[in-house]
Design a binder for these strands. Structure first.
Lengths: 342, 342
DNA sequence: AAGAATATCACAATCGTTTGTGAAACAAAC
DNA sequence: GTTTGTTTCACAAACGATTGTGATATTCTT
């Protein structure tokens, strides 16, 4: 593999001139610059990034700490990050933090060993704030997605889950539903608690009393959506609409309702949260609250890159996306005359 | 960030001794090795990978060229690769080759510029064989997933799509179906042509004449499955079973059948291919042919790592997985008495 | 045409490792 | 007590780039 010296020898100049020519720097005659460029192309030269980063102390790498690349929810974010990475010349390095305990380890490994220049951290767990502060101390730029810290030095990108829960619930209420259930995610998880808060707010605003009987909770997965819905179906009077904590849970709810011989939305309306790619393919297509995942990933990367370029990590940016309701066919107006109640 | 020199100064030895101590090499007294180790820990030392790879000429990076990280089909493979990468200490570098034209560019970029030590190439397009041969010439180890080349120098991992198509079709025939349709992927794509071949073979073996009327083709996406199924439904006599080219197309078919007021599997049986995570959640759960995606990714990485370690890329390995049928509830026995025909 | 200003280049140091070689220190052998 | 053989270490040269500095060549000034 040819080096800068090979080019220098071929053109008849010193290596330093070649370097300057290749990097479009001041102080090299146009004709020799062209000669260098030509020679580089002929030799098939590519700079050795290791050698370069050794002296420039830059790696042009961004670390991405993300719960699980293979989850559709996150992989769409990654696409957004990749878009700006490829445009700006940065390389993305991924680390899955299946276990939140791994997160801090992954971060130090990326920063200390891999020498990434900055980090995008998706869904950091509350318990591990300390390592985030150590990043601030070290001066490593980073942006956090899916969490918002009030600390003015942090860059945060998230959607307003309270508003999301509110909008979802309000949509059901506006359809005429009064017995609106909620299948919540694990309430230890911040986003689940926030969506529940929005749910309560919408009920409150409509003058509907909150009933603990209409709320079940579990992990943000299909199974818990399924079993949660089953539990809800066994209670009387039966709910006529349900707000699922996320789309996966909504899929489970859809299944439970179908198995009970009921139909969506005639008997029960269902709304989800996230708007996964698959949600337009369910039967019926799922009404849901969209999280702009691609945009979040893209903007996180953009934000980080600007931090990196101007190296002045002044005050942190807070970007909060408004959740947007996507109305499909799993929700409809409540018509008390057209059904028999349990 | 501390360097090897800082440790040397602290312990009172030369940098070379520190290097040897850290790398467990022969020729350093046990007591000083311990002292070095302790100092390294105290200082929070992490080797500078750039400096190291500059002299060792190793990057410990593996390039992964893959059509689309965010597709569930591929992201599961990635999980398999990550499993062995994390165990062996390699770092994975991804490059999406949405456009097959980008593939060759991505490969050279990874090999020449990023200096990956080896490559995993998923779904290389037939048209671009030449760059693969240039890899062989350069001596860069690589393994190809989802394609099999007979060239003995290549490492290939794939599932037998002919057998897969055969097994799927045979399952339907064994259920008593004789009018078995096929919604094929784009026949320019190798795997689609192979699955069609398996379909024909199963028909042939059962003495069922092949009817072009029962085959439609399109891209491997939901929409084309949907429209393909609609086209099939408009033909008489109507098919009683359909083998979809992959699960996404099967989802589309399911939708088209439901919209036609027919039910699965009572009126029409449907079988897919791939066994995506979502396929157990469709209504009804989809019978399909499983591709061991995780295992394929894992074994590709393992194979590549062994190539890298022993650096003797002798003859290539060919690993062919048998496709495995997963019977759920979208297929059932054909009972001609219990229905009205069009 | 001589001096000043500028453009163009070569030289050398540097980044943080690894690794070959030889010097010093120590132990074992006669 | 000299010789031989081992350890244990320091020194120095790489690896392939970037970059500051100073030397030469070129142009401009008057």
């Amino acid at each position: 593999m040819p080096t800068i010296k090979d080019i220098a020898r071929k053109v008849g100049v010193s290596p330093s001139v070649v370097s300057r020519a290749l990097n479009n720097k001041y102080g090299v005659k146009e004709s020799t610059r062209q000669a260098v460029l030509r020679a580089a192309k002929e030799l098939g030269y590519h700079p050795n990034v290791a050698a370069r980063s050794l002296v420039t102390k830059r790696t042009e790498m961004i670390g991405v700490i993300i719960p699980d690349i293979s989850e559709p929810f996150y992989s769409r974010m990654i696409k957004g990050m990749e878009y700006v990475a490829s445009k700006t010349g940065y390389t993305l390095l991924f680390s899955n933090s299946y276990e939140s305990l791994e997160q801090s380890k992954a971060v130090v490994k990326m920063v200390e060993a891999q020498r990434v220049e900055g980090l995008i951290i998706v869904g950091s767990s509350l318990k591990e704030r300390d390592y985030i502060y150590s990043l601030i101390d070290k001066g490593t730029p980073f942006v956090v997605i899916e969490r918002h810290y009030s600390d003015p030095r942090m860059n945060c990108i998230w959607v307003d889950n309270v508003v999301g829960g509110y909008v979802a619930t309000k949509h059901l209420i506006q359809c005429g539903h009064t017995r609106v259930a909620h299948i919540s995610g694990d309430l230890d998880v911040e986003v689940a608690a926030e969506r529940l808060k929005g749910y309560k707010k919408a009920l409150d605003e409509a003058g509907i009393p909150f009933s603990p009987d209409l709320v079940v909770s579990g992990a943000f997965v299909w199974q818990d959506g399924y079993h949660g819905m089953k539990a809800l179906l066994s209670r009387t009077p039966r709910c006529t609409a349900v707000f699922a904590g996320n789309d996966s849970m909504a899929y489970g709810a859809l299944q439970a309702i179908a198995e009970a011989g009921l139909s969506v939305p005639q008997d029960i309306s269902v709304i989800g949260f996230d708007d996964l790619e698959f949600s337009s393919l369910t039967n019926p297509p799922l009404t849901t609250v969209r999280q702009p995942r691609y945009e979040m990933g893209r903007d996180a990367a953009r934000l980080l890159v600007t931090c990196l370029e101007q190296s002045t990590q002044d005050k942190g940016m807070k970007i909060c996306y408004p959740p947007e309701i996507v109305i499909r066919r799993s929700t409809s107006v409540y018509d008390s005359t057209d059904r028999t109640h349990a």
